[in-house]
């Protein structure tokens, strides 16, 4: 479990992270989304025991990030993919991974096997002896990802794993993350790719120095918008809007072309009434469904509210 209490970090007069309270369960994939400068990297650096909090505390696996001996134990349990891959460009992919595996005390035999498996999974085994400096950005990112996993950490911190990658490379990385998710690792992903967050994460936190909201993507959209039923009709006859508006349990109606967006309290109660009303008025209902608000809407709304 990752737990932070009032975690705060200042750089001089700038507050990078303010009073962060989070609880991330084991096996959960948590997305930390927010614009540039929101304090995502700073948070991850604090959790990886790289920089100290100004105030507040954080525990990983019950260990305190602020106590040096416990920090050392935490660092053995975590894998970090930093914003920049930071590989040794003159060394081969294999040597890069082998070096890290040694630092993490992975025994020699296991090391070879694991590096081979990682590189094969990422499609980089053929290139294992090439110096990393010759690799494309996407390939480097894969090697850096393998590096974070070479000791099979319980906790994985990924700082913008798909940023700056071409669509194909980011797809590989994303698919790989989906595989990792199945392995039951606790994964903390910093991203401003909302698509990734929605697809990969069990829960997301929206960050902008302070944590603005946290929950599953669905919970987040529910927080701002009630349920909206979308009714598609062959065409909307005059009076239909007014009739639906006056139904009990309907809080608002909007027309979008030949579709009606109906804000409702409890869809189970109200949706049948809507259908009946429209059919009675001679409407031809083509389909009826629930409007999904994406994470993007949540994000824009949250950050828009702050401005």
């Amino acid at each position: 479990m990752i737990e932070t209490r009032g975690l705060t970090r200042k750089f001089g007069t700038i507050t990078a992270v303010d009073d962060l309270n989070l609880k991330i369960r084991d096996g959960e994939v948590f997305g930390f989304i927010g614009p540039n400068g929101a304090g995502k990297t700073t948070t991850v650096r604090m959790l990886c025991c790289l920089i100290a909090p100004t105030s507040g505390s954080a525990h990983i696996h019950g260990l305190d990030i602020s106590k040096p001996e416990e920090a050392l134990m935490i660092r053995g349990k975590i894998g970090l993919l930093p914003e920049m891959p930071g590989l040794y460009e003159s060394l081969s992919a294999y040597r890069n991974l082998d070096f890290y595996a040694q630092l993490y005390d992975v025994p020699k035999g296991v090391r070879e096997e694991r590096i081979q498996k990682l590189l094969q999974t990422l499609g980089m085994w053929e290139r294992r002896d090439d110096p990393v400096g010759k690799f494309s950005k996407g390939m480097k990112q894969k090697i850096a990802m393998a590096r974070a996993l070479v000791h099979e950490p319980d906790y994985l911190f990924l700082d913008e794993p798909t940023s700056g990658l071409d669509p194909e490379a980011s797809l590989t990385v994303r698919n790989y993350l989906l595989d990792l998710k199945k392995e039951g690792r606790t994964i903390f992903i910093n991203t401003h790719n909302l698509d990734d967050a929605a697809r990969l994460c069990d829960r997301v936190g929206v960050m902008s120095t302070r944590l603005l909201a946290v929950g599953t993507p669905d919970e987040l959209s529910g927080m701002f918008w009630g349920n909206t039923t979308v009714v598609r009709l062959r065409h909307i006859a005059p009076g239909m809007i007014d009739a639906v508006s006056s139904l009990p349990g309907v809080t608002g109606v909007k027309q979008e072309g030949s579709a009606m967006l109906v804000d409702v309290g409890y869809p189970e109660d109200v949706n049948p009434l809507i259908t009946k009303t429209l059919v009675n008025m001679g409407g031809e209902v083509l389909s009826m469904g629930e409007l999904k608000r994406g994470l993007e809407d949540v994000y824009i709304k949250l950050l828009g509210e702050r401005r």
Binding site: L50, L72, G86, Y100, L103, A144
Partner: peptide, 14 residues
Amino acid sequence: LNRSLEPLLATPTT
């Protein structure tokens, strides 16, 4: 310059 210290510092090395 290569930013390779950050991952190195994240290992359990003092």
